[in-house]
């Protein structure tokens, strides 16, 4: 962490340390596809993993995770972590679909932003470690949702717009993929073309130095948590549209894969280093891995084991830290 540097502009063909994880993860995606194709060729005689329909379908499913991971990455770049993702996502979905009508999506997003604001205030002003504060906020949000819904899936259904954004197609491209792409462009612009993006990397490297350079570190931290909350809520709104309603615990399967996607993409879990492209590649890797394993009818036990081993393996290849941290 002490040796972290701002990403340098790419020059020629020289491989920067920032690119290595992305290339290796990309190569691993091809390996996964090759193994999956070999399996389907052997058992069914078709290369269904390489068909555009299948790949687009996977990207559509992966978009939800990708949107969550985009927000999680901003917070991780700061050297913090957002564990309130599961119930922020669920709250956005539930309250959005409960309001219904044209305000469904804005309300859902606003819920996420408010949760993010609370997280940011706790971390930036109260200086409670983000891991524990966001955990507490997650528990409170869960409590609110159980209180409001009675612990069951709410009766309200997703609005047509939510369904369209989650399941519609434009020119054959699934809508969630387009939403993810637009969000990705915005995040890349934020990280690379604005001063706030630079501040995020600076704070992740050394908050003290960033503060002494005159950066309003509190505002940047709050902003990053708000974006993370909004991303979770956006994913929740889309997910509610995808399954036509919100349900309890819909956010739980997204927290750890999102963090894993960010880290596999080469972002330092301690903050300050990482490229957004890596997060995208990490998301696709996890989605394809899950999909290939389920097509190969791997039982849940085997899936968990392989999932864990892949994360360790990827990090052993390029996530190793230097020796003692002085």
């Amino acid at each position: 962490m002490a040796t972290g540097s701002l990403p340098k502009p790419a020059s020629g063909w020289s491989l920067s340390p920032e690119d290595k994880p992305i290339l290796i993860a990309g190569a691993f995606i091809l390996v996964i596809l090759a193994i999956g194709t070999a399996y389907t060729l052997a058992t069914q005689g078709t290369a269904s993993f390489l068909s555009p329909v299948y790949l687009l379908q996977q990207l559509q499913v992966g978009a939800f995770l990708g949107i969550v991971a985009a927000g999680a990455m901003l917070v991780i770049l700061l050297g913090h972590i957002d564990l309130s993702i599961p119930w922020t996502l669920t709250a956005g979905a539930m309250l959005g679909s409960a309001i219904g009508g044209p305000y469904a999506i804005p309300v859902g997003l606003a819920v996420g932003m408010v949760v993010g604001l609370v997280n940011g205030l706790g971390v930036a002003y109260l200086r409670v470690p983000s891991m524990i504060f966001t955990l507490g906020v997650n528990a409170v949000m869960r409590g609110f949702m159980v209180m409001l819904t009675g612990g069951y899936a709410p009766q309200s259904t997703a609005t047509p717009l939510m369904s369209y954004l989650a399941t519609g197609h434009v020119l054959g491209i699934p809508m969630p993929l387009i939403v993810w792409a637009v969000l990705s462009v915005l995040v890349v612009l934020l990280l690379q073309r604005t001063s706030v993006g630079r501040y995020i990397y600076a704070i992740g490297n050394r908050e003290r130095a960033a503060y002494l350079s005159g950066i309003n570190t509190r505002m940047v931290i709050i902003l990053a948590f708000i974006i993370s909350g909004a991303c979770s809520a956006l994913a929740g709104v889309l997910l509610a549209g995808y399954s036509s309603k919100a349900y309890q615990g819909m956010g739980d399967p997204y927290l750890l894969p999102a963090i894993a996607a960010v880290v596999i993409g080469g972002t330092n879990i301690l903050g300050g280093r990482g490229r957004y492209l890596g997060t995208v590649v990490g998301t696709i890797l996890i989605v394809l891995l899950t999909s290939v394993l389920s097509v190969m009818q791997m039982p849940e036990a085997g899936r968990q084991i392989i999932y864990g081993l892949v994360i360790i393996l990827m990090l052993l290849v390029y996530g190793r830290q230097r020796g003692v941290i002085a």
């Binding site: 963090i259 879990i269 849940e300 036990a301 084991i305 864990g308 990090l315 052993l316």
Partner: peptide, 21 residues
């Protein structure tokens, strides 16, 4: 492995859950 504890144990935790299943 020189992997950050938080992320290393996230991964090994998945493996242990797998064995438990």
């Amino acid at each position: 492995g020189r992997i950050q504890p938080i992320i290393a144990t996230l991964a090994t935790g998945a493996v242990y859950i797998g064995i438990a299943l």
